[in-house]
């Protein structure tokens, strides 16, 4: 299907939202998707918050899929200092380059975006606000409105699209996905921004009746555009059954 957002004219995409919204997994997938569509893409790791689960950890795996990863230099790559990679500016200033920026979650994670504001405006960038309505502070349209207003102010960016990512990690059922989606749809209607697509884990796609042949990829589910993810995080403790 056609992309549900104007990626060809605005190939730079910023992902913002609360911690746990699913931005990093989405950023990995979007950059891989763009790499296959445009013959290459750049993924910028601007996460100055999360010490472990960030793009740079999967650098080799993602670069093997045609994505150039820009992250802090080797000497500080495993650190927790707010170092932004200078190459990020170069990537964003290069016309036509397909770029995805992953931002750290929550309030401190958004602050680096202030320095990107002018560049983003010059690129006519897509700014996605990613929402998981099962995270504290995002569970109702009213909570969402408050968090959205606060985070937009901190990021200094104009959000262009909403993205729904309703999930409880491995416990996401079809019913739970639909329940969360309604919350985000109500919020979208309330603030008048388009709910551009919903994120669906590959294991849920079949249960929703989506025949996702190529991952990651955009598909339709009734009136809803969905982006079906490949899971790039695979960690040993996820296999261990708890309780």
């Amino acid at each position: 299907m056609n992309l549900p957002f104007s990626s060809d004219t605005a190939p730079a995409t910023f992902l913002i939202g609360g911690a746990g919204a699913g931005k990093t997994e989405l950023a990995l997938n979007l950059s891989v998707f763009k790499a296959s569509r445009y013959g290459g893409s750049t993924l910028i790791d601007l996460d100055i918050v999360n010490p472990f689960f960030r793009v740079r950890k999967l650098r080799d795996e993602i670069e093997a899929l045609g994505v150039k990863v820009i992250c802090p230099g080797d000497r500080v790559v495993a650190g927790d200092i707010p170092a932004l990679p200078p190459a990020a500016w170069g990537a964003l200033e290069t016309p036509g380059q397909a770029v995805v920026c992953d931002i750290g979650g929550g309030e401190p994670g958004l602050r680096p975006l202030g320095r990107m504001k002018e560049l983003a405006a010059a690129r006519d960038a897509n700014v996605f606000f990613v929402i998981n309505p099962f995270r504290p502070g995002f569970t109702s349209p009213a909570e969402l409105a408050e968090s959205f207003r606060h985070m937009c102010g901190l990021s200094a960016m104009q959000v262009t699209h909403l993205v729904a990512n309703p999930n409880l990690s491995g416990e996401t059922s079809v019913e739970l996905f639909r329940e969360g989606l309604v919350t985000v749809q109500e919020f979208a209607a309330k603030i008048g921004l388009p709910l551009t697509f919903a994120v669906v884990a590959s294991e849920l796609a079949g249960k929703l009746g989506i025949a996702a042949e190529v991952l990651p990829g955009f598909y339709s589910s009734g009136d809803l555009n969905v982006f079906v993810l490949e899971r790039y995080w695979s960690v040993p403790w996820h296999f261990g059954v708890v309780r």
């Binding site: 911690a19 746990g20 099962f134 995270r135 569970t139 999930n167 409880l168 990690s169 416990e171």
Partner: peptide, 11 residues
């Protein structure tokens, strides 16, 4: 209370 998705530190 309904289930929510949380970080260990937040929980």
């Amino acid at each position: 209370m309904a289930k929510v998705l949380m970080k260990g530190n937040e929980a």
